[in-house]
Amino acid sequence: MSSKNKSKKSIKIKVSDLSVSYSNDKKNLLAINDISFDVLKGEFLAIIGPSGCGKTTILNCLAGLIRPTSGTIFIKNSHNTLKKQITMVFQDALLLPWRTVHSNITLGLEISGISPKNKQNDIDKTLNLFGLGNFKNFYPHELSGGLKQRVNLARAYVCNPEVLLLDEPFSHLDLITKEKLQLELRRIFLISKKTFIFVTHDIDEAVFLADRILLLSPGPGEIKTIVNTNLGKDRKVSFKKNRSFLSVKNRVRLLLAQEGTK
């Protein structure tokens, strides 16, 4: 079983010597300095690092929203020619206030030229998967922060991308809601068999969710190390009390703290 698993994990994304600098009027800021890493097909990769170390910048490059200053990003195509390989989930829910939950979720489809009418089945499935079935006719201002983030996630998910980029989607939520959504996200990840790249600065969250964690050091952003969590597939809330979980968490914390003294 495990050997079969390993053979399945081919490289999905290859980032080589990626650098990004932002140039404003006078200043020239190197945000990402020469980083290289692979993302495996179907893995849950977390990217963790302190504020300003370039996490969002990396996701923006992967999503094609900004062009790298140097370096390459190679994304392996799948056999079925999907129009959209990658979609991004932003930190703020960014729901359109004049659209209901249902039509907020179809925004990505509409923008990429797919008629929601032909996807009604997928849309309903996604609504239920994210626990939004009862809220589909609600407007964003009628939703709690947690529900808004569910809509945010569902909107990206329903586009059926091969890779989902998530930029700190839970960072504005209270701890209880956050843990609930972490649990559901992990469950959805396992069902979906998609590749997830999840940016966070919450160590607990990264260890709980990810198969591998990419640790970034700031100023300019560089990869310190990559940690394999080796924590298995199924994770419950009680899992956060496990010794193995806690030891990975401590290891990551120490590694990040070392960077602070750099």
């Binding site: 999503a63 929203l65 959209k84 932003f90 960014l94 359109l96 925004l107 509409e110 923008i111 990429s112």
Partner: peptide
Amino acid sequence: IDHDFIRLGKSFGGSDLKIITNIIFPA
């Protein structure tokens, strides 16, 4: 319009026209 909404539209890989009709115009 908050520029993030335009980034959102672009992240779905839509044409300018689609972003205009779905996001810019209603906003």
